[in-house]
Amino acid sequence: QEVTLRYAGTLPASHHMTDGQKLFAKLVAEKTGGQVKVEVYPSGQLYKAHDIPTAVASGALDIGDNLTNVWTADAISELNDLPFLFRDARHAAKAWAPGGQLFEAYTRKMAKRRMKPLGVMFFGSLFDFSMRDRALVKLEDFKGAKIRSYGALASEALRILGASPVTMDPGEMYLAIQSGTIDGAITGVSSIDSRKLWEAGKETTVAQVAFGVFAMNMNLAKFNSLSEKNQKALLEAGREAFEWSVDESIARDQKSTEFLRTKGNVTILTPEQKQAWAAVLGPVYTSWGKRADAEDKALVEWVKGL
């Protein structure tokens, strides 16, 4: 029998994550001989980032993707936000590859939440800085800076570094930086490029403190209702989309960084500078550790050893 699955995303139609969704849909159609059709709804038009997990778990939506960290108490979902856990994008990709320890553990946790991860998609660098008038290199540079933050661990990290985290909707960032309401914002280089933040923030610091990983979660009951052959096809398509997204996100980040160089100053942190930041950010691991279980902690060690 034929099945149609609705797949919701939160990023704009022009974003590579949306291309990844479309690629996934195409791969599924090929691998199932058209038996499973995936309809893609990008840019949050169906559900906003925060509603997607509920929509998937309740069965109102078949597949949805969003940052792993946006909503649950599971410490494993926040793993991506641990500062400098991943040395670079390739390292992060290795850690999240389907079949690896991390992905398998994540799949087990999500089963309790009534969801089936089909794979993950790579957003790219998520934790760089677009600043109005200063590069952030030494710890003193953070002193008193008002910086737009996202998520709990990022805010915690900012506080430790000596800055004030500020909350605002993404649409407000541009003007807030331009007018000096905030000194800058945490976001990935690709967003600094696409949201034109460089017009307001002349100083880009490529810190790569964290990488964005979007989980492609499917409603578990819906997944189980599919034939074994189709299940396998979905997982294969998920893996191929993952592999594509890794290369694509690295290429895009590279391209955005080059572009930003033509528009303002770009500072790329050296490994030593990253180490100096990481040394200070230890408390973020401690507070995460209080919420994590033994398996989560073992995963961190496993990732570090990769």
Partner: peptide
């Protein structure tokens, strides 16, 4: 369009409607 599943999204949709600092 979606059948009775749609009903289950009333609560989440209403809750999220105000989830903006603006």
């Amino acid at each position: 369009l979606d059948g009775p599943h749609a009903l289950s999204m009333l609560g989440p949709t209403l809750y999220a409607a105000n989830n903006s600092f603006l």
